[in-house]
């Protein structure tokens, strides 16, 4: 099928690539179908384009590009809402805000877009970790990622190689994390288990 987009003109979309967002994106509850567009430019930035609204496209980036060790902590309820058994089947993106002055480019680390890659269901999930920022400045990290890309022969081979390395690295991190979680509670997790007693400040 063909869809209209403001940034990329008319795009031919394979229906199997359409990701459904039953709850939409926060503030855009009526937008329930998106696709990920890779403009194949040099910026490492992808776009979450609405199927029905040409003007709605969120710039997104894989968090591992900014921080190879980044690992989204999903609660059992989050996984369940995406019909996931573990976070390994999830693809995570951070929504970016790109101002005219690129030095102030920011990523929303607090509420990533998490997608069940197999079933093509997505949600914007608000993470509990209070240290994560909605507007985290990432210019320097992005520059580093771009510098790593520079050393590769071409952007395409870089991406492919990066994904291969990354999935391996992720598995290692996931394994380590599981182990760590079994041994002691994650220090980032504020809530005691099994019940929590959060006190609002």
């Amino acid at each position: 099928m063909k869809i209209e987009t403001q940034r990329f003109g008319t795009q031919e979309v394979n229906e199997s690539e359409i990701i459904s967002f039953p709850e939409g994106i926060l503030g855009f509850e009526g937008e329930n179908q998106f696709i990920v567009i890779d403009p194949s430019d040099s910026t490492l930035i992808l776009w979450l384009q609405s199927i029905k609204s040409p003007e709605i496209a969120f710039p997104i980036i894989e968090p591992q590009l900014l921080d190879p060790a980044s690992q989204v902590q999903l609660l059992p309820a989050d996984l369940k809402s995406l019909s996931l058994e573990s976070s390994t089947g999830a693809t995570t993106y951070n929504i970016l805000t790109i101002p005219a002055d690129i030095k102030y480019i920011s990523a929303n680390l607090k509420a990533p877009v998490v997608i069940n890659s197999k079933l093509k269901i997505g949600r914007q999930i608000v993470l509990q970790d209070s240290k994560l920022e909605v507007r985290a400045e990432i210019y320097n990290q992005l520059k580093t990622a771009i510098a790593s890309a520079k050393s590769a022969a071409s952007n395409d081979s870089y991406r492919t190689r990066f994904e291969a390395q990354n999935s391996q690295a992720n598995n290692n991190v996931a394994a380590k994390n599981t182990q760590a979680n079994n041994e002691k509670a994650n220090p980032k997790e504020v809530r005691p288990s099994p019940s929590n007693e959060n006190i609002a400040e």
């Binding site: 930035i45 970016l96 005219a100 002055d101 690129i102 914007q124 507007r135 992005l142």
Partner: peptide
């Protein structure tokens, strides 16, 4: 609010990045 700002992402900023 941040999602709304993300939609307004600037072509100028993107060009600078490229």
């Amino acid at each position: 609010d941040q999602n709304k700002k993300a939609l307004d992402s600037s072509h100028q900023g993107l060009d600078a990045l490229s």
